[in-house]
Design a protein around this nucleic acid. Structure first.
Lengths: 253, 253
DNA sequence: CTTGACCCTACCGTTACGTGAGGGTCTACT
DNA sequence: AGTAGACCCTCACGTAACGGTAGGGTCAAG
C-alpha cells in the first residue's frame, strides 16, 4: 500500500512539485523509495500530509509546521485539538468580517459612506489574520470571464437610484408604523420586514428568514447598526428587529 | 484630511513597506504627494485599501485585485456583494474542515485511525482553497513558547488510555440504555449525554450544549459518523443524537 | 541648530512553490 | 524486441508579495 507522488497528489489535491518541496525541506519525507528512486508514500505519510495542510491553511510557515509536527511530546490528538481551536477562531474572524460587509451594504443602501472611525473598526477585523492560499476562480489571468460575467453582476447608476429609493421607502414605512403605535408583530410591520428581506435578496445576497432574523439582532447588538437606526428615529433599531423576528416566525421559524 | 503612510499603516494594520509595494504595483497609489514627496492618502484611498484587504483575505493575487478594482463597471456595492458571497463560501469550507476534525477526534477517542477512503474525503475539504497570510502566535520563531506551553497542552500515553476507557464506557452505557428500551429523552440517557459532553470539553474543545446538539445531529447526518455508530449497534446514531438533544433541552436550549 | 521620529528611493533577501530542461522508468501495444 | 506515452527523478532558474536594510532628505521640538 505505497503510493507514488502522482497518486498522493491526486488524492490530496497538492501538486507533485509541492510534494518534492516538502521532501526537500524535511516536512514530509516519504517512508521509502523504490529501486528506481521513486518516492513511496505510506499511510502515515498521508496522515502527516493532512496535518500539514491544516496547519498551512491556518497560515503556519512550513518551518514552523516542521517543528511542531516533529515535537515528540505532541501526538495526533494534540494537533487535532489545536487545529480545531484555531480553525474555530478563524471562522469567528471571518464572520466578523461578514458582519462588517453587511454593515457597509446597509450604508450603501442609504447612499452614505462610512466615517473614518467606522472604517477603523472594520480594519480591526483583519488583525491577527493567520493564513492565505490561492484564488477561487483564476482571476487576474482569465479574461474571458470579464466579458461574460460582469454584465450579470453589475448594477447601473439607475439601478442604484432605484435601490436607494426602495430601501428608503421601507425605512420610512417602518418609522411611520412605529410612530403610529402599530405593534412590531402586527401585519403591517411584518410586511415591511418581509419587503426588506426581499429587497436584500434581490440586490445583495440570498437572505433566508433565519439570516434575516440574525441581521435584525445585529441592528440592536452591533453598536454601529444601532446608532444608525436610532439616529433615524429613537427605538427604530429594536422595532425593526422585532418586526423582522415576528416576520420570520410567521414564515415558520 | 490626508494621512501619511505611517498613519495609514497604524489604522489598517498593514506595514509601511506593504503600502509602498501597493503603490509600486499600482494597486493603491495615494491621491497626492506633499512638497517633500511624502505620500498623502485620502479617505477614498482608505476605502480602496479596505476592499483590497478583503480580496487579499480571499486569496486574490494582487494583480487580479488591480484589474477588478479598476473595472469601471463595478461599483463599491458590487464588490461588497462579491466579497460577501465568497466570504460566506469560505466560512462554509472552514466549517466542513471543523467537522472533519471532530470526526477524527471521535476516531481518536475510539483508538482507531481513518481508512484511506475516509482520509480522501477529508482532503476534499481543502480543494479550491483561496488565501493565506501569517501565523497566529509567532510559531516557528518563538522558542520560549515551546517550553512554557507545551506541557500544558499535551497528553501522555496514560491520559490517552484514560480518555479511551472513559469514552468507551459512555458508549457502552448508551448501547445498554438503548437496548434495554430506555427512552432517549429519559434521565439515564440524558445523563450519559451530559457525561459525553463533559468529556469532550475536558479533553478536546469547549463544547456548549448547543454545539453538542449540532455534533449530535452530525452523528446522523454525516455518513461517516452514522456508519461508525450504527456499526457499534444499529440505531445508536439516532439514539445518541436524541439523547444529546434532550439533554441540551434539559439544560435550557 | 540638532536630535528623534518619519518619509523617500533603491536594492537585495525570503518563502513556497511554478515551470521547464534533460534524462531515466514502466507498462502497453505492435 | 522495439517504442510510444505516461510517470518519475534531479537540478536550476523564475515569481509573488512583501521583509529588511542602506543611504539620505524632512520636520516639529527643544
Amino acid at each position: 500500500m505505497s503510493l507514488s507522488v502522482g497518486q498522493v497528489a491526486g488524492i490530496s489535491g497538492v501538486t507533485v512539485r509541492t510534494l518534492h518541496h516538502y521532501d526537500e525541506v524535511g516536512l514530509l519525507s516519504p517512508g521509502g523509495r523504490s529501486l528506481a528512486g521513486y518516492r513511496l508514500y505510506s499511510e502515515e505519510d498521508l496522515e502527516r500530509l493532512e496535518r500539514i495542510l491544516y496547519y498551512k491553511e491556518l497560515g503556519f510557515p512550513l518551518e514552523g509546521i516542521v517543528t511542531i509536527l516533529n515535537d515528540p511530546a505532541a501526538g495526533t490528538a494534540d494537533h487535532l485539538r489545536r487545529q480545531h481551536k484555531l480553525l474555530t477562531r478563524r471562522i469567528g474572524r471571518l464572520q466578523a468580517m461578514v458582519s462588517s460587509l453587511e454593515y457597509e451594504m446597509e450604508a450603501q443602501l442609504m447612499g452614505i459612506s462610512l466615517t473614518p472611525e467606522e472604517r477603523t473598526e472594520v480594519f480591526g477585523d483583519f488583525l491577527d489574520a493567520g493564513y492565505t492560499e490561492e484564488a477561487e476562480e483564476r482571476w487576474g489571468s482569465t479574461d474571458a470571464w470579464k466579458q461574460s460575467q460582469r454584465k450579470a453582476t453589475s448594477y447601473s447608476k439607475q439601478d442604484w437610484l432605484a435601490i436607494k429609493k426602495q430601501s428608503e421607502g421601507i425605512e420610512q414605512g417602518m418609522v411611520e408604523a412605529m410612530q403610529s403605535g402599530l405593534p412590531a408583530d402586527g401585519t403591517p410591520a411584518m410586511d415591511l420586514a418581509e419587503e426588506h428581506r426581499a429587497s436584500i435578496t434581490r440586490w445583495f445576497y440570498d437572505c433566508s428568514h433565519e439570516m434575516h432574523r440574525s441581521l435584525g439582532s445585529m441592528y440592536v447588538d452591533d453598536p454601529r447598526f444601532k446608532a444608525r437606526y436610532d439616529g433615524i428615529a429613537p427605538g427604530l433599531a429594536e422595532y425593526a428587529r422585532d418586526a423582522i423576528a415576528a416576520n420570520a416566525a410567521r414564515h415558520g421559524q
